[in-house]
């Protein structure tokens, strides 16, 4: 089983991004995803910068480098950028919207179907395979049993070898996307005058209940889980199910430590107690996502 660093879902200054990926270079990750998936106004790195960074990483390491693309695309300009990223010539692309699937299919290039592509069953998976999908991440709200059912059906139909399966296993979960920017709203600004304020919140902005319970993280137009999803206790199960890649979502604090913890867990499994005030694994166990099974 391999390990990946998912794209950072946050907005960081360019120097911080570069620093992060210098560290990623030295890390034990097998696959590195990079690129802007949340908001096209985040332009500390433009499309060409992400591609240049991706190529540098591909050149300097023997890791697989994947360019992740936007999830909610609303304007023709965003599609132009998306096409640039998709038609990059050498780097693999993660599609997070069906527009990217369409473009990759037109280019006759394989792609990764990211967690924001709604693939809930084998029939859908087959549609995506026909388009050129080579790797699949299920939607984050689905459970281990749900995944197992699809993988078993794929084996029964002799198509399991046609795709790799990756599972979002650690980090703040991307849960929703809106036209509205909630970070700008939190500073009492409209989106058109957001002043790129996401950059002041490298791990997003916590949204708590009035009793102080952490509920969500506001990350621009994206809403995330306030608790970090953590499937460390399920690593052995993931491996036994035939999951090919475990994804650690990039953040500014713990991603590299968690990566090592997960790798260690595969070698020498032990039981980790999750902190129910900061961590969750409910989705995997088919209960409320924010809870710990």
């Amino acid at each position: 089983m391999k390990f990946s660093l998912g794209p950072s879902l946050f907005f960081w200054p360019k120097t911080d991004v570069e620093q992060f990926y210098q560290q990623a270079k030295q890390s034990s990750a097998d696959v590195i995803y990079l690129g802007e998936t949340v908001c096209s106004k985040r332009r500390e790195l433009k499309a060409k910068d992400w591609l240049a960074l991706g190529r540098e990483l591909a050149h300097d390491t023997n890791k697989q480098i994947v360019i992740s693309t936007m999830t909610l695309l609303e304007s023709p300009a965003e599609i132009v950028t998306l096409k640039k990223l998709c038609d990059n010539g050498d780097l693999l692309v993660e599609a997070n919207d069906l527009s990217a699937v369409q473009i990759m299919h037109d280019l006759n290039m394989p792609f990764v179907a990211g967690p924001a592509i709604n693939c809930y069953n084998l029939s859908t998976l087959k549609v995506l395979l026909k388009q050129g999908m080579m790797r699949w991440l299920m939607p984050v709200e689905l459970s281990g049993d749900w995944l197992k059912a699809i993988l078993t059906q794929a084996s029964d139909e002799n198509i399991r070898e046609k795709f790799e399966c990756e599972v979002f296993s650690w980090g703040y979960l991307p849960l929703a996307y809106s036209a509205r920017c909630f970070t700008a709203r939190s500073e009492d600004r409209p989106k058109d005058d957001c002043q790129y304020c996401c950059i002041n919140y490298p791990q997003g902005r916590k949204m708590n209940s009035r009793e102080g319970e952490q509920v969500f993280v506001l990350n621009g137009i994206q809403t995330m889980s306030a608790y970090q999803y953590n499937l460390i206790n399920e690593v052995t199960q993931l491996s036994e199910m035939g999951v090919d890649i475990v994804r650690i979502s990039s953040d500014s604090e713990q991603a590299f430590t968690q990566l090592e913890k997960f790798k260690q867990q595969l070698l020498t499994p032990s039981t980790h107690l999750l902190d129910p005030l900061n961590e969750c694994n409910g989705f995997w166990h088919k209960i409320a996502g924010m809870s710990v099974a």
Binding site: V140, L173, S178, F283
Partner: peptide, 13 residues
């Protein structure tokens, strides 16, 4: 207010 079909807030809670 979310892009429909891409909102897991309800299942999270």
């Amino acid at each position: 207010i979310m892009a429909e079909g891409r909102c897991y807030l309800s299942s999270y809670m």
